[in-house]
Amino acid sequence: MTSLPETTAKKLGLVVDLDICVGCHACAVNCKEWNAAGKSAPLTDYDPYGKKPDGVWFNRIHTFETTDDAGQGQTVHFPRSCLHCEDAPCVTVCPTGASYKRTEDGIVLVNEDICIGCKLCSWACPYGAREYDEHAGVMKKCTLCVDKIYNTNLPEESRVPACVSTCPAGARSFGDLGDPQSEVSKLVAARGGYDLMPEQGTKPVNKYLPPRPKEHHKGQRGEDGKAPRMLAHADASTDGAGLIARWVDKILS
């Protein structure tokens, strides 16, 4: 049934910290690795070793640069994946019932056995979360690693989406955003987490944490406006050096 559930018991989702993300694409790679063998397998690749490699990915990492009125800029790495929206337009447009939102945890999934591959859900999604598998003829999307987060064969700490467990910088958090007492909800409240394109009326569950404001030219940067040098390249003095080092220095100078 593609009518959306009135409420969901949980609102499982991700919190992405744009202040921490270093744009390494590890989340995208581990997502591909887990899901190429999981519920949505295979995540088809076309011409993977050719000149124009292409394929189905659930995670895409963009890099944006912002420029304010004073000409000061900031580089922000921006991971993009399904936001498991409360008012998911990809679900309601589906003519077959293949696209659905789970009542128990709010995860938006595709039933690939009944998907007709009409692609309308990908048109309805503002976030480009859905990618069509040309070989399988069905739509595919982030499952929030539904086959990992409930997998009791895995140690408890591994029961988080692949993108979260792999992030080397700790920029991604996973939890119940419907519970105001959860760690992720507290994080969103503390850091001013926000929705992407709220004007689209999708009520995303996933939240993004803004980059912390940079104070240009105050301490962080040198007199020339460039990043400060950590150390001078040639050290003129032997202050703090040990006895042998001072002795070698004396012989060599």
């Binding site: 640069e65 304010d68 000061q72 980059p211």
Partner: peptide, 17 residues
């Protein structure tokens, strides 16, 4: 609005995924 970075000024893509 797509990135939520509008408050930082003009938002431009510098590297595609």
């Amino acid at each position: 609005t797509a990135t939520g970075l509008g408050h930082l000024g003009k938002v431009e893509l510098t590297a595609s995924p």
